[in-house]
């Protein structure tokens, strides 16, 4: 039982990190109708920025965390401006966005290998060693921080999306982007805002992943799991992305804990295929016309 509770806690914590990624992924998908594989680049931007601020600059943790967020934002907004906007303005098909995003993902990974190097680098052990012990269960400070900071950002996002004018425009754009422009909304600015939010969350996730594991050029590949979580929860649905992520984090940790970590990844992708076959709209996704 103690082991189970321990897995539950570990799984929830990693689930929140997945949620940070999945939400941004889902947001971009809901507005531009394509799966942004370049999300991995936003994550490593955050992870490496945080790493260098903590080590080379020796900034305190909160500032390094903010720096990681800024790193994610810069790359995300830049990617949108340089790659996606020209494709949009030429009116090219969705496939072009997907290809561009895959290209960027590969480019991002390799530019890190070429400049910083392929090595795994550990974040300085500021938090990861400290853990609370409660009745045989150990809860690391890092896990608590990931869950708390992650929840704060997710709640802020929910507030923005549901209660502000820009948020309403984002919801409207998820339904019909062109018509949002007819309302007097500058849609390019709105899309930049969405990438800013997605980049911030990805940068934050990168920072937590770096602290939890290590930083390495392929760290962004974890995006695939957030993708599974987003599809599972219902692509385009924000609550769905959070629920799907936490669920995936828990299931994954339990499988790794009781069976093996090889089975874990097989399970994750089996789940993806199953969801796509049985209920492509996911748990909370609206049934709408096919989107790639």
């Amino acid at each position: 039982m103690i082991k189970f509770i321990q897995q539950l806690i570990n799984g929830t914590s990693i689930g929140f990190v997945y949620a940070l990624i999945a939400i941004g992924y889902s947001l971009i998908y809901s507005i531009l109708s394509f799966s942004n594989f370049a999300h991995s680049t936003f994550i490593i931007a955050g992870a490496y920025t945080g790493f260098f601020l903590l080590t080379a600059v020796s900034l305190p943790l909160p500032f390094s965390l903010l720096g990681a967020i800024v790193g994610g934002i810069l790359i995300a907004v830049f990617a949108e401006k340089v790659a996606y906007r020209p494709i949009r303005e030429r009116g090219n098909p969705t496939l072009y966005f997907i290809i561009a995003s895959m290209g960027m993902s590969i480019f991002g990974e390799n530019i890190v290998i070429a400049t910083i190097g392929p090595k795994f680098r550990s974040y300085p052990p500021i938090l990861s060693v400290t853990a609370y012990q409660i009745g045989g269960i150990s809860i690391s400070v890092l896990d608590i921080m990931a869950a708390v900071v992650g929840s704060i950002f997710l709640l802020m996002l929910m507030y923005v999306v549901n209660k502000t004018r820009q948020g309403m425009a984002i919801r409207a754009a998820a339904f019909d982007l062109e018509t949002v422009g007819l309302m007097g909304v500058n849609t390019n600015q709105l899309i930049s805002l969405v990438f800013l939010v997605a980049g911030a969350l990805a940068g934050l996730a990168g920072f937590f992943l770096g602290m939890k594991y290590t930083v390495f050029p392929q760290l962004g590949n974890l995006t695939m799991k957030a993708y599974v979580a987003a599809v599972f929860g219902g692509l385009g649905s924000l609550p769905g992305a959070v629920i799907g992520s936490v669920f995936l984090g828990i299931i994954e940790t339990i499988i790794a804990g009781y069976f093996s970590s090889t089975l874990r990844d097989i399970f994750v992708f089996a789940l993806l295929i199953l969801v796509l076959l049985v209920r492509p709209s996911g748990l909370m996704g609206a049934k709408r016309e096919d989107k790639v």
Binding site: R165, M168, A169, R171, A172, A174, F175, D176, E178, T179, V180, L182, M183, G184, V185, A286
Partner: peptide
């Protein structure tokens, strides 16, 4: 028409007055 099917009638009107 292109109304926003996921927003309420009131929210659709708010969108109309975005500026």
């Amino acid at each position: 028409r292109h109304i926003f099917g996921n927003l309420t009638v009131y929210e659709n009107l708010v969108m109309g007055s975005y500026l």
